[in-house]
Each structure stands twice: as structure tokens, then as C-alpha cells.
Design a protein around this nucleic acid. Structure first.
Lengths: 339, 339
DNA sequence: CAACAAAGGGTAATCGATTGCACAATTTAA
DNA sequence: TTAAATTGTGCAATCGATTACCCTTTGTTG
């Protein structure tokens, strides 16, 4: 139970009878130190179990080797996968990650910004809250040149890099899939239209309809908050109508789930009477009955890519930092559309 | 686009024509500073937009105000809820959180320990990987007096505080519920028996059987890794048998799900032919068809409680640090047992 | 061989906040 | 009135790593 105090570069220096600065340089692979000395230092460091004190180093260099992440909620599978991707890459590059949840509320998102700023993170990855319409708080970062990358729910008002999946194509193949299954009246439950991802999903859907000469019926397109409850309201609106659709493409899986549950409740057969396609491939979409056809988007890949972008900006502050990366999506066919 | 450099205590000191140490003390509410001075300092700090530099402070005090968390995987709902609880409390108390995922592998868990140790966290909250049998790596913390608290999947070999839910009672009420529904042969799919939680769930189940004078049949009790695949294997073993049970209590929801899916596949009716109860109340358990009766355990509460315990130890190093806190569980009745 | 360059490494200041100790001013006690 | 105690602040060292600048050697060049 020794209270073994951490070894410092000075312990190494003393052991080798050289100066601390030499040790520091040797460990940082500085070209002014001879190979022989470097080896000696590294060996001694290992022998003494040296662990660099990040605090001291960070204080001096005034970078924290920490990146901040702002997400709506960690319990959504897409986001927890993104976190996994972010953490994995960040850690191998020597960065720590601080996670903040906005709970999909603009005010809490602003809090997150403050928290991360106070923690002096070197960069930030964010996916904005569903009701955020004002982006002033993000200027805390941009004004001070703290790199910022958005993913999934991005923001065009700020000039930053971003990583998204191909929502347009996702909407397109979802709708075209339903068309190929012989559906005639395809409704869409879209998300808030101030968010690009939902605009794009809707536009993809519209393009598919037009391509196949379908009439676009306003009443079949509903904007929703995409929660469980809101999804149920949408389901009622669409399915209780006398002229109900024979297919619904929902902008997320939760809404699609609400549809399925309500449809079953009122005795509709899925997919015979109503085909359903969701978006995201949340884990439950495979287990729900009937299992849900959906568009797969890899949170892990998005997170990894966003981190790659961010770390590039952090380490190499020059260059174009308004890149947009679009990752592919894929249709996962399951029972809810299999007719 | 000013490169506004962060203000330091010395900027405040200069503005008020006092010394840095006074400012430091004032901000820390030191009793040796007059109220008048404190107020002046606080006002000026606000006016200048002062943000303390945690790096400097931490270097001096050699504590990082950071706690580390090791969990099997963030994408499991129970754990992401726990994280939410941990982060929320930690942040209000001025701590940051670093999360590491072991992916349920002992080797990666050891890596996490190293990472957190190198980050010089002030304390650690951990839930051990499913196959961890050797706890040597945790001595990195205990040997150096770094507080450690386990939750959910705890470890008895190390003398630490821990937070669990009442697994015994959970197992008991699950089994008793099935008995009350008239089930006669109740099987149990248990988890690895080197983990307390699974031992307790099994013991609770056994107690309920004995209380109601049920015969305990060895062949109805299976040990499993509780994955989706393993669950399917267990389902086959139990349901393909000539003398199949009429109820199954699974130690987690994933296994229960596997049971349900396989039972449906071979044409069994649930709950008429087979009643099923799971454990955890994962979100999908509500959506699966038939919806799953399960034992609810609040990840959020467990996380919060564990953090409370840990921060207590960190701030008040004395006292008994081998407390065990048991949180309540609750039966959630759904279709899979409703007969 | 003078003069200079390169290689290798040391000195000391620095990042910003904290804190033991010293000390002046004021109050209290005797 | 004087010694002692209390209050309120300042000085300077400190945490550990980094780095601008300086100083030796040793080697190179005309």
C-alpha cells in the first residue's frame, strides 16, 4: 500500500544524471537529442513507470487534448454508436472525450456549450437539438477559433465542416421501394423542416414520387416531432382518414413504430393493408412485429468520420474547413413492406 | 474575430490593484478575505468574463476533477441511462466524466483501467465485463488509493462500495408472478454464475419455487452468455425438448427476446403455451410482440447513486468505503405473461 | 590554423492557480 | 497603555512539462 508518488521527468533526469529539458526533448523525439540519449531516456522511463502528467503539459501548451461532444441523447442507438466511433478514434490519437447531452432542448444545448468551453476543449463535435433554431451559442467556439464539426443534424448558418448520411438518397430509395411493392398512396411523416436531414428525406421521397409520376398529395405529408407520442397522433390523422394511404415512409424508426402499433390496434394488416418504412435501423426495428423495413445509417461511421475531420482541423489549422462528407445509406428490407 | 485571450486571476488582480493570491482566495471563498473584497473580486471576475483555468488549478492541487467510468457497452440502454445519471450529478458537482467501453472483454477492460489511470482521474465507477474473472488490473486504482465504486456487475474480491438493484427480489417476483399465472414448469436462463447479479436472480427464482413447493428441476436451469445468439441456443434446448416448460424467466431481456422469437417460429403461442419474463425493461421490451413482461431497473438511479457514493469518498476520504446500496426493482406486466 | 557551423544539451522562464509564511493594521485583553 | 490576538493581504515557491536562448564540443572549410 505504498503511496508511490508519480514519477516525473525530473526523476528520470536524476537517474540518468542529465537535465529535465533533455528528458522532455527525448520523450518528444526532438531532433536535437542523440539516438543514444533518447534510448536511455525511454528505457529509464519505462523502468520507472513514468506516466506523463497531462495537466502540466497541457498547461504549458495550452491545449487540453480533449474534444467535446454535444448530442441530443446518448440513449438513442444512433448516437451511442456515434459516440463509440468518436471515442475509439479520439483515444487512439491521444484525445479524451467529454460528452454532453442536450436532451433535445436548445437551452440545455447552450449550457453544454458553456460547459465545454469552460473545460477548454480543443474542438467540438455536435449534433443539434431538434428544436434549436438559434445558433448564437455556437459562436462561443467559432469566435475563438475552436474547431467545430457537426454531424447528422447539422447547421448551415455556421461555416463548419459536417458529416451526414445521404438522407436524400435514403428518402428516395425508401419511397421507390414502396412504389416497387405496388403501393399507390404513400404518405410521409417528416421531421422538423428547419433541420436539413428531414428536408432531405422529404425531398428524396418527393423525387421518387415524381420520377414514377405519382401525384404529390399535400395531405399525405405531415411534419412531426418524431417522438413516440407525436407519432401516434400522426398515425391517427393518417389512418383514421376515410382515404387512408396504403404506405407510410416515416423519417425515423420511432414514428414508424408508432404507426405499426396503432395500425395493429385498429385492425390493419401490415404490410397487406399498410406498408411501413422507417429510418435509422434502430435495434428494435428488427424485433418489432412485423419487423420494420428501414434505412440503415451507421452512427459509428459518422462518428469516426467527424472525429477524423475534427482532429485534422485541430492539428493542421490551415486549409478548407467547410467540408461536407456524405456517407452512404442502405435499405434494410423486412416484413413491414414485404408484400 | 478577436483572439481574446482568456482572462486570468492576475488580470482581475491588476484591475482591482490587489494581489493574485487575494483574488484566488476570494474566488475560493476563503474565510480570511473580507466580504467587501470578495464581492469586488466576484464582480470584476464576472465583468471580465473570467473562466478559471482548470489545468493550472488541477496541476497545483493534483486532482483533476474528473471521474472515469468503465462500462461494457454504451449502446445498452441500461448503461446509457446509467451514464446519463452519472454525468448529470457529476457535472453539477463540478466534475467531468471520461467514459471507456470494455466491450465486455476482460482485456479491453484492463486497457480502460490504464487509460483512466494515465488520465489521473480522481475516482472510477465501473461495471465489469461479462467474462472478467481476474481483477488484478483494478489494483492499479486500489493500490494508489484511487476511489473505486462498482455498479450492477460488481466484484466482491475487491473491498469497495457498490450499487446494485435488488436482483434477488427481482428473480423472486418474476418467478412468483409466473406461478401466480398458473405456470407449472418454470425454466430459468441465467447469466454467468461468477457475477453476483446473475447468482442473485437465480437464487430469487429458486426461493420462489421453494416457497410454493415447486420441484426444482436441474434441466430447466441453463447458464448462458445472454447474447442474442446464445439466447437462441437456449431457446432451442428448452423448447425442442419433449418435456418443455410452460414458462421461462430469462436473466435479461435480450434472452427473453430470443425466446419469444424462437417460440413464435416453432408455432408456440405466447403466453398461452409459454409465458416469458425478462429482466431490465429495455426499451424494445415494450414494442416486441407480444410485449415483454420484465423487471424494471433504473439505470439512471443506479448511476446517480454510484456517483454520489464516489464523490463522497473523493471529498471525504475517511469513513467506511465498503457500503453496498441496493435499489428497488419493479415488475412490469405485459402481454408475454398475461394469461 | 583561424573562423565558423552543427550537434548535443543545459538554464531558467513560463503556463495559471494555490498556499505556507510573513507582516501590517486593527481590535481585544489585561 | 501595552502586549497579545485577530483580520486581511502580499510574497514567493510550487505543481510538471515545455521551450527560447545560451554554451560547449567536435567537425568543417578556405
Amino acid at each position: 500500500m505504498k503511496k508511490e508518488s508519480h514519477t516525473t521527468i525530473h526523476d528520470i533526469a536524476r537517474a540518468l544524471n542529465i537535465s529535465g529539458s533533455t528528458v522532455s526533448r527525448a520523450l518528444n523525439d526532438n531532433s536535437r537529442i542523440s539516438e543514444k540519449t533518447k534510448k536511455a531516456v525511454r528505457d529509464m522511463a519505462r523502468q520507472l513507470g513514468y506516466q506523463p502528467n497531462a495537466l502540466a503539459s497541457n498547461l504549458r501548451t495550452s491545449c487540453t487534448n480533449t474534444i467535446g461532444v454535444i448530442i441530443p441523447r446518448i440513449s438513442r442507438y444512433f448516437f451511442s454508436s456515434a459516440i463509440t466511433g468518436i471515442e475509439e478514434l479520439a483515444r487512439t490519437r491521444g484525445y479524451n472525450v467529454i460528452i454532453c447531452q442536450s436532451n433535445d432542448q436548445e437551452a440545455r444545448e447552450a449550457d453544454c456549450v458553456q460547459t465545454l468551453f469552460a473545460s477548454r476543449v480543443d474542438g467540438v463535435i455536435s449534433s443539434i437539438a431538434i428544436n434549436t433554431e438559434n445558433f448564437e451559442h455556437y459562436k462561443t467556439f467559432t469566435n475563438r477559433n475552436i474547431p467545430l464539426v457537426f454531424f447528422d443534424r447539422v447547421c448551415d448558418e455556421l461555416e463548419t465542416s459536417q458529416v451526414v448520411v445521404d438522407d436524400f438518397k435514403g428518402g428516395f430509395i425508401a419511397a421507390e421501394h414502396l412504389i416497387s411493392k405496388g403501393c399507390k398512396r404513400i404518405a410521409h411523416i417528416g421531421g422538423p423542416q428547419h433541420l436539413n436531414i428531414y428536408i432531405n428525406r422529404l425531398q428524396g421521397y418527393l423525387k421518387a414520387l415524381r420520377k414514377h409520376n405519382f401525384e404529390v398529395e399535400e395531405e399525405l405529408i405531415i411534419e412531426s416531432l418524431l417522438t413516440r407520442e407525436d407519432g401516434e397522433a400522426c398515425a391517427k390523422k393518417l389512418l383514421d382518414s376515410p382515404r387512408r394511404p396504403d404506405a407510410i415512409f416515416a423519417a425515423n424508426d420511432i414514428s414508424a413504430l408508432s404507426i405499426i402499433l396503432y395500425a395493429k390496434e385498429i385492425g390493419l394488416r401490415i404490410p397487406e393493408d399498410l406498408a411501413v418504412v422507417g429510418f435509422s435501423n434502430e435495434p428494435f426495428s428488427e424485433y418489432v412485429s412485423p419487423s420494420l423495413t428501414t434505412i440503415e445509417q451507421s452512427g459509428f461511421d459518422v462518428g469516426t468520420k467527424a472525429t477524423e475531420l475534427l482532429l485534422d482541423i485541430i492539428t493542421n489549422k490551415t486549409g478548407n474547413h467547410q467540408e461536407t462528407i456524405v456517407l452512404p445509406v442502405k435499405l434494410i428490407e423486412r416484413e413491414s413492406s414485404n408484400r
